[in-house]
Amino acid sequence: MKNFLKIPNYSNYKHNDNNFRQNNSLSISSKNCKPGKVKAASDTLLKRIHKHRALYIFMLPAIIYVAIFYYGPMYGIQIAFKDYNSAFGIWNSKWVGFKHFKDFFGGYYFGRLIKNTFAISFYSLIDFPIQIIVALMLNEIRNYKYKKFVQTVLYAPHFISTVVMVGIVTTMLSPSIGVVNHIIELLGYERQYFIIQPAAFRHIYVWSGVWQEMGWGAIIYLAALSNVDIQLHEAATIDGASRMQRIKYINIPTITPTIVIMLILRMGRIATVGYEKAFLLQNDLNIAVSEIISTYVYRRGLVGGQYSFSTAVGLFNNVLNIIMLLIANAISRKISETSLF
């Protein structure tokens, strides 16, 4: 981001171009190459903007899209402080201050939602070390073809849709036809209806996630590991370091910055549990543990029609995320000198 302050070296090609002109008598039609523009250093901002106008046009569709669909909804956040009435619209609905926030914080579900959301979120952090270990182990496989094959298999679940994944899980855990229960019965135990058991929900949620993202999440560390200087390994080997020691003292330190960055980013989402999966795994019997902030927003807002209240809950969630991100970033900057910003 610091490049903005530097005088950019955009004059490069003009100089080249100028030489080109002097040596050849070809006429150049591009507007960017007019001789009057050679005095690069003295270009004003407006001139520079004019010169790059095509690039702004490149960005224009995305800028408009983001303005409408990403910034547009931010305008609607105000209904969190209003009583939204569709007859009046967003702007003309009545202000009610923090009423909806008070209702939410004082409500019966507040404690439960926070607990469920954070319980799943922190439990899900288990895939962090798992992905790192998978990467370190894959990195030690020397047969290139075998390694590629293993990677292909480990990546596959990432590409399966949430619906299908939850479908596979419910089927395999089904009390009547599920293979897991067939095995449980063969071992002499009683069949279990896992999907409706509140005690099983978090385990199902987290471990199906581990299954799905174990390989995919490892990619980033694998890529970081490919940057390890091979001479370090050679030197360490000559000094008698075992493979385990080389992993510990060379590989892990190399990928530590990546791990830290990933961890900070993860903290920025710690108050968000993907509603897509939780919603699909939810049912009336496990709702006490499976209801999380985001599914609650959906249920109260879109199903229940309480737009203002749900918007307040969603806003609370978003702010919580940002605070967590900033805290994680600050801590990391202190401890490891690696930070996002």
């Binding site: 490049n3 520079r48 669909f69 909804p73 609607g76 969603g314 978003n318």
Partner: peptide, 28 residues
């Protein structure tokens, strides 16, 4: 060398961390 490049970057990046949420998006 694009003037204002960082302003546009920030413009896009903000939406990664802050959003209107499900209901305002739905209303929009």
């Amino acid at each position: 060398e694009l003037p204002g490049r960082n302003i546009f970057m920030v413009y896009f990046l903000i939406t990664m961390y802050f959003s209107g949420g499900m209901i305002p998006t739905f209303l929009l």
